[in-house]
Simulated assay, not measured.
Amino acid sequence: MPLSEHEQRLLDQLEQQLHADDPKFASHMESASGRSLSTRHIVVGSLIAVAGILVLLIGISNQIIALGVLGFIVMGAGVYWATSRRSGGGKDASSKAGKSSPPSKGGFMSNLENRWDERRQGEDRQ
């Protein structure tokens, strides 16, 4: 069901406000929406995980610890492969990755304190 014009305008205003309030979070959300699970990744990863389980079981039944550990590692790699997300942007994703914001002079806590102060000042004005 499509959005009405009023709802679309409200959504656009919310998006603009988000970009104005927290551009870093907004850009992170934009880049995350371009990434999705691939069916191919899920199928291949599941097959690798099943193969890892089989190797693990063979290692356990033959009491070969190294083979059991190898099977566990292969199983973990399969699960990781199946759940990893790939970027759908291609060129766009690589160009965004090349751009990085300059590091802040303060630390993590300093940035949080500054953002908290800005929010408090915004509340006091209203």
Rank of each mutant, 00 (worst) to 15 (best):
L57R: 05
I73C: 02
S84F: 07
G78Q: 01
R120W: 12
L70K: 00
G76H: 03
G52E: 00
Q17V: 11
I73N: 00
G68E: 00
R125C: 04
A97R: 08
G106V: 04
S27I: 05
R35M: 09
Q126G: 12
S100G: 04
S95Q: 12
S61V: 04
S95R: 13
G122H: 10
H6L: 15
K24A: 14
I60R: 05
F25S: 07
I48P: 00
N114L: 10
Q17S: 15
D117I: 13
S110T: 12
S27T: 10
S33H: 09
E118H: 11
S33Q: 08
H6G: 12
A82H: 03
R115H: 11
A20K: 13
W116I: 15
T83A: 10
D22W: 06
M109A: 11
A51C: 02
Y80A: 15
N62L: 13
I53F: 04
S46P: 01
L3E: 09
A82C: 03
G106R: 04
D21T: 15
G52P: 00
I48A: 04
L18F: 07
K96T: 09
A82K: 03
S95G: 06
T39M: 09
S31R: 13
S84R: 12
D22F: 06
A93M: 01
G98I: 07
D92P: 03
G52S: 00
H19I: 13
G71I: 00
E15V: 12
S95Y: 14
D117H: 12
R115Q: 15
S100K: 11
S36W: 06
L11H: 09
Q126T: 13
E15W: 11
A77M: 06
H28V: 09
R9H: 11
R86V: 09
D124S: 14
S87W: 04
H6A: 15
A32F: 11
E123C: 07
K24C: 05
L67Q: 03
A32I: 06
G71S: 00
L3K: 09
